[in-house]
Design a binder for these strands. Structure first.
Lengths: 120, 120
DNA sequence: ATTATGCTTCTATTTAACTAATACAACTGT
DNA sequence: ACAGTTGTATTAGTTAAATAGAAGCATAAT
């Protein structure tokens, strides 16, 4: 289901996160599907369960899966994921806006910039 | 002119950057003023010239000073600084917008959010 | 109780950040 | 030209953080 690339310089937990994101967004994994258990995936990839868990924790934090202790991890619906990611985006947006206001950038100027970028 | 705090957990170069930013923005240092030379400041703080240089490089990158090889480093005018910082801000803004568009967030929604934040 | 599941804690290792040492290059005044 | 400034680049050592592994704990299902 997942294949590691040891030539890749990125940490393995990050590779795992990225592959699952892809599987979910592309519809291979659907809402409610069971994720492979931490242990079974660790065995099949010949790596440590802690590394898998780290990947799953990140996927959960970003809204891609949810996890129930003792039961397993499950895929979130893509619309929930989108909503969660949008929320995170607005958080970052808010911070950047605060910075921008400190730099005396006018809201109108920001909106104008958005419209410009949107049409490209 | 500058005092280091070794209880502070932040790296030294970062402390230096922060102090000079403050000196410049508060008007203690003005446009065209000579920054202390890399070596003299290193001696007076009893640290390595390379560390000072790293701090100066960052200050230059952020538009607070400009530097002429063989001559020294000089304070930039506060309006130039503002302009430079605004440019950097728009760069970050642009990146975040691209992300937002991928998440199917509408430009109108963004602008509405800006107006909301501006009035707080 | 057994056997699945995820979680926590601790340790080793690897990687990146930071600082220092040293040598180089450019400009100024004489 | 030369001595004395200045900033710059390269390299190496040290320290701190990120990563991955090992082992045991906690929760849930049957």
């Amino acid at each position: 289901m997942i294949l590691l690339d040891y030539k890749d310089r990125r940490p393995i937990y990050e590779q795992i996160v990225e592959k699952f994101k892809h599987l979910i967004l592309s519809g291979v994994l659907n809402e409610g599907d069971n994720m492979p258990s931490v242990r079974s995936l660790a065995v099949s990839l010949s790596i440590n369960p802690g590394t898998i868990q780290r990947a799953y924790a990140k996927l959960e934090q970003e809204g891609f899966i949810y996890t129930v202790s003792g039961k397993g991890s499950f895929v979130t619906g893509t619309d929930s994921i989108l909503k969660e990611q949008q929320n995170e985006w607005f958080e970052k947006f808010k911070e950047l806006l605060a910075e921008g206001f400190l730099l005396e950038i006018e809201p109108e100027q920001m909106c104008a910039y958005i419209k410009k970028e949107a049409n490209q």
